[in-house]
Computed example of a mutant assay.
Amino acid sequence: MRAYYMDNDPSDQRLAHDSGRAVDAETLDALGVLRWHIPVDPEGKWESEVDAIANERHYKNRDVVVVNKEGMGDQFEATLKKFYHEHMHEDEEIRYVIEGGGYFDVREAPTDEWIRLHVGSGDMLVLPAGIYHRFGLDMGMKSRTMRLFKDEPKWIAHNRGVDTDVNPFRVDYLKALQSKGVAVGA
């Protein structure tokens, strides 16, 4: 997994858009972004490592989502647009990339800059509830990803806006950042 600030070029979201400014582990830690690299191996050892993290974080359910043109047909472009729209969730978002790759973009506090996390096979990521983010595929144009859930599988996005800015999960996220000494602005 590679983390860097985006270059703010609005062209094709599948491109790297690397500003040349790397983001260090401390910055991601301060934002509450957790990450692991667990190589996908033919023997399936990765599954026990993913299970251990899931158990530690009290995840009870999971599914696997395949995002590619072949499998999704006419829904492919609409689904990518939905994922790439800036949003937050009221629960952690935890993903393990089995195959393919893409970008999780997260908003940094207090700058509101996009930090791009390029994920690929074997990368596991936890985004905290309340963090603004989005997802897009990279130039490989495919991803097979395990999603983990504390309860029943659900994916409810709250698109960024005035109402979302005061959502209790967003407010709690900002308070958690402040308790870590991160300035979050007005």
Rank of each mutant, 00 (worst) to 15 (best):
G71R: 01
I38A: 11
L31I: 02
H89P: 01
M141T: 09
E77P: 00
D18N: 12
I53W: 03
A129S: 09
H85E: 14
V65Y: 00
W155T: 05
Y5M: 04
E56K: 08
R107G: 12
E43S: 08
Y132H: 07
I94W: 10
G102C: 09
W114F: 02
I156K: 14
D105A: 00
R35S: 14
D51H: 04
V23L: 15
N167T: 08
E49A: 15
L174R: 14
A129C: 03
H87T: 00
L125W: 05
D63P: 02
P39T: 01
V126W: 00
V182P: 13
Y59D: 13
E90P: 02
S121D: 06
G32R: 04
S179V: 07
V182A: 00
R160P: 04
R95P: 14
E56T: 11
R147E: 05
A109I: 01
L177A: 06
E47I: 03
A129L: 01
E86H: 15
L177V: 11
A176K: 12
A52T: 04
L117A: 09
R21G: 11
G71S: 10
A22M: 09
N61D: 08
A176H: 12
V40C: 05
H37S: 07
D18M: 08
M1Y: 08
D138G: 00
W36I: 13
R14C: 10
V106M: 02
P39M: 01
Y103C: 15
R95Q: 09
G122R: 10
N68D: 15
F83H: 07
F169Q: 11
H89V: 04
K82T: 15
D7N: 10
V64G: 03
V162W: 12
E77Q: 07
L117N: 02
P10F: 05
D29N: 06
P168A: 12
D172V: 01
T111I: 06
R144I: 04
M1V: 09
L127V: 14
N68W: 09
S143T: 13
M88F: 14
T145H: 03
Y103H: 03
T27M: 08
D105C: 04
A22G: 08
G185H: 01
T111R: 05
A25R: 12
R62T: 13
V64T: 12
W155L: 10
A176D: 09
V33K: 06
H89E: 00
K180Q: 06
V119Y: 05
T79K: 10
D9C: 11
E77L: 07
V162N: 15
V106L: 03
H89W: 00
Q75L: 07
R134K: 06
L125I: 15
Y4H: 11
P110G: 02
A16V: 15
H118S: 08
L177C: 12
E47T: 08
N55I: 05
